[in-house]
Computed example of a mutant assay.
Amino acid sequence: MSKSMWQGVIPAITTPFTEDGQVDHAFLAKHAQWQVEAGCIGMVPLGSLGESATLSFDEKVAVVRTLVKALGDVPVIPGIGSLSTGEAVKLAQACEAEGARGLMILPAYAYSSDWHEARAHFAAVARATRLPILLYNNPIAYKTDFSAAQIVELANEFPQIEAVKESSGDIRRLAGIQELSGDRLVLMTGIDDAIVEGLAMGVTGWIAGQVNAFPRESVVLFERARDGGYAAVKELYDWFLPTLRLDTIPKFVQAIKLTQQMVGWGSERVRAPRLVLEGAEREHAVRVIEQAIKTRPEL
């Protein structure tokens, strides 16, 4: 697998639900195809934005199956997250069997593991698959933090680790990883409102959130910033930033699904324990999204 699989905009796709709370596979397929038509190069289902923790094992496998069928040659790279290492191993194997082209591996949910434990979890999943791996570091969400040295140690042991999604929010980590690994790893970010900064620090891939509602704008933002730096993209970034910041609030899933609903590409339905935004939180999000729609640039 070439490292080009990781270089570009890859949606962390939301999981759509029908009115009776089931996964809406018909919309999932259509939504993914729309994002690829806008220039996205792959699809990451079953991440935190995909409400993975609320999906059953069988639902996760079915999501991967739907996307592989809908997207053909476009890589589907599911998130591998679960409460136990054993289930993560089984999920990795099931996703590979369904035709996934890579895996985004994250620490086990709920239990905040130390390096000794996190390393063992990661190694068990990596050994269970032949697929290329994206190592996902998001200590804010998962309470387990991989340092630059630990990331590089894992990459040295497992050659199939091709990329790292560094989402600690500390932009300095990117320089630290490069210092230790050279160009061994493709650097990616999963933070919408740090994409331009990340590109300046060597990121070449973006696992994006608001791309679910604004795919073309996301791809153009990425390409202009990659090719021309901050000056080339400042006007577009200024327009997009308030909406991108909705990706980094605790209720980012609800906010991004609300954005989708307001642009006519989805529903804000979420699975409990999440509930749709209401009150002041909703008013703020609606205000931001309405302004983005009203002032949407001609690209």
Rank of each mutant, 00 (worst) to 15 (best):
Q22R: 10
N212V: 06
L258V: 10
E197N: 13
V63P: 03
E235P: 11
A12P: 07
S112Q: 15
I256S: 07
L174H: 05
K143C: 10
A100C: 01
S113Q: 12
S84A: 05
I140S: 14
F27N: 03
L187D: 08
M188D: 11
A70R: 01
F240S: 10
Q291E: 14
A118H: 11
E283V: 11
R282E: 15
P16W: 00
P132F: 05
S48V: 12
R127P: 10
E197P: 10
M5S: 07
P75C: 07
A280D: 15
V125P: 00
H116I: 15
A94V: 01
V288G: 09
Y142G: 00
A148D: 07
V253I: 15
V196H: 03
I177P: 02
Y109E: 05
L46V: 10
M188F: 08
G81T: 10
G202R: 01
M1H: 14
R173M: 10
R184T: 04
S48M: 09
V61D: 03
E179Y: 08
E179I: 06
T248S: 13
M262H: 08
D73I: 05
G39F: 09
R127T: 12
A225W: 03
G228A: 11
A232N: 12
V44R: 07
D20M: 00
R216G: 12
D58P: 00
R119H: 14
E268I: 01
Y109C: 06
Y109N: 04
V9H: 06
T66G: 05
L103H: 01
R282G: 14
K257M: 07
A194E: 15
